[in-house]
Amino acid sequence: MAGKPTRDGFGEGLLALGKTHPHVVALSGDLEDSARAIWFKTAYPDRFFSVGIAEQDLIGTAAGLALAGKIPFACSFSQFVTGKTLEQLRMAVCYQQLNVKVAGSHGGLSVGADGATAEALEELTHMRALPRMTVIVPCDALEATKATIACADYPGPVFLRLGRAPVPTITKEADPYRIGEAAVMRPGHDVAIVACGVMVAHALQAAEQLAREGIEARVINLHTIKPLDQATLLAAAKEAGAIVTAEEHTVLGGLGGAVAELLVQTHPVPMRFVGVLDRFGTSGDPAELLKVFHLMPEDLVKAAKDVLRLKQASFKVQG
């Protein structure tokens, strides 16, 4: 499978917006190369602003640009652009309901060798908790390009979580993309795997393996974690009756939390959360780390079988 990082998809989308959207501007805290905003900077130097290594000012300046009618993309490492800036994102961006787009590259374990301090594993939880914030995690570079372009025309604050490591391209050019509408990547009625980012590719591989064993797993690409596509998730709970969530992120309050919050109140079904288990990252090759942290297709297969057993047990109890 061809591999490409979602940050590259973002960089291409931002570059395309430069041509179509004159009000789009970009800014960074000396990480525009890493975040691939440098392609936009090179093409549109008058529309790119550096604020130095100062993330709080980065977000505040973006808010000011938005106050004056621009559509700013504030780009940095996912950890720093969400972690050092929670207060700025909360008051200056979300409370003021400004049209600021925050692009966090190097999300999850994809920064690999740099280790725990740069590995963002909690930011979906933080961003999701902010009123008015939209939270997007593209599953491949192509979808990242579409998401970037879509969010320029989607009013209000948006957080885009991007990765550094190459991921398989699993969507197609012709696939429709709408913020807030999850994509069913594979049908199935025995169990549903709800995933984002690189875990969507892993979910598809897991589903193939499960199919060989006679288990039909539905795979849902939940690229928008907020607002949540309630209809698609509710249908999955009703029709499959068992859910596995999968994210390259802590299991506390991220994608799994969002799905559980919905289903426990509407249609409770057995669930398993595949993600990082309340711990920090560590140095290593990103592909290796996905194994170390149990985020591989075989981990999803195991979780699917667990949740299927729970579902069957509950059938027996109900008689």
Binding site: T61, G64, M91, A92
Partner: peptide
């Protein structure tokens, strides 16, 4: 013109407007 209460944020916003 702006929200405030979490201190220290106004000047960054002023800069952003000036750049725009």
């Amino acid at each position: 013109e702006i929200a405030a209460g979490s201190l220290g944020q106004g000047l960054s916003m002023a800069n952003g407007v000036a750049l725009a």
